[in-house]
Amino acid sequence: MNQAPRSFQLVPGATASPVILHVPHASRTIPPDVRDGILLDDHALARELDHVTDAHTAEIAAEAAAAAAVTPWQFVNRLSRLVVDPERFPDEREEMLTAGMGAVYTRTTRREPLRPTALDPAPLLDRYFHPYAAAMTRAVADRLDAAGRAVVIDVHSYPTHALPYELHGDAPRPPICLGTDPHHTPGELLTVARRAFAGFGGTALDTPFAGTYVPLQFHRRDPRVSALMVEIRRDLYMDEPGGTAGPGLERLASALADLVAASTM
Rank of each mutant, 00 (worst) to 15 (best):
1 M>N: 12
1 M>T: 11
3 Q>E: 14
4 A>F: 01
5 P>R: 13
7 S>A: 13
12 P>Y: 01
12 P>D: 08
13 G>Y: 00
13 G>N: 04
14 A>R: 13
18 P>T: 03
21 L>P: 00
27 S>E: 06
31 P>E: 00
31 P>D: 02
33 D>L: 11
34 V>N: 00
36 D>S: 13
37 G>S: 12
39 L>M: 11
40 L>C: 10
42 D>L: 02
42 D>T: 14
45 L>S: 04
48 E>T: 11
49 L>S: 11
49 L>A: 09
49 L>F: 06
51 H>K: 08
52 V>W: 02
55 A>M: 02
57 T>S: 00
57 T>W: 01
57 T>P: 00
57 T>K: 00
59 E>H: 03
60 I>T: 07
63 E>C: 12
65 A>V: 04
66 A>T: 08
66 A>H: 14
66 A>M: 08
67 A>Y: 01
69 A>W: 01
70 V>Y: 08
74 Q>G: 02
78 R>G: 05
80 S>G: 08
81 R>A: 03
81 R>T: 08
84 V>W: 00
84 V>C: 07
85 D>R: 04
85 D>M: 03
86 P>Q: 07
87 E>M: 04
88 R>H: 02
89 F>P: 06
90 P>K: 10
91 D>C: 11
91 D>H: 09
95 E>L: 15
97 L>Y: 01
98 T>R: 15
102 G>S: 11
104 V>C: 14
105 Y>Q: 04
107 R>G: 05
110 R>T: 03
111 R>I: 08
111 R>F: 01
111 R>Q: 15
112 E>R: 14
120 D>R: 00
127 R>E: 08
127 R>K: 12
129 F>P: 03
131 P>N: 09
131 P>G: 03
138 R>L: 12
138 R>V: 14
140 V>K: 06
141 A>C: 02
142 D>G: 10
149 R>C: 12
149 R>T: 07
150 A>C: 15
153 I>M: 05
155 V>S: 03
157 S>P: 15
158 Y>Q: 14
163 L>K: 07
165 Y>G: 06
170 D>Q: 15
171 A>R: 15
173 R>Y: 05
173 R>T: 14
173 R>C: 09
177 C>N: 15
177 C>H: 06
180 T>V: 04
180 T>L: 01
181 D>G: 08
182 P>T: 05
182 P>Y: 04
183 H>N: 08
185 T>W: 12
187 G>C: 09
190 L>Y: 10
191 T>D: 15
191 T>Y: 02
192 V>P: 02
193 A>K: 08
194 R>G: 11
198 A>T: 02
199 G>L: 04
200 F>R: 05
208 P>D: 07
209 F>I: 15
212 T>A: 12
213 Y>H: 10
213 Y>P: 04
216 L>C: 03
217 Q>V: 13
218 F>C: 13
221 R>N: 13
223 P>W: 07
227 A>C: 05
229 M>H: 06
229 M>T: 00
229 M>A: 14
229 M>K: 07
230 V>W: 02
231 E>A: 09
234 R>N: 09
235 D>E: 13
235 D>G: 11
238 M>V: 03
240 E>C: 02
242 G>A: 11
246 G>C: 05
247 P>C: 07
249 L>Q: 14
250 E>V: 13
255 A>Q: 02
256 L>Y: 01
260 V>D: 03
263 S>N: 08
264 T>V: 10
265 M>W: 02
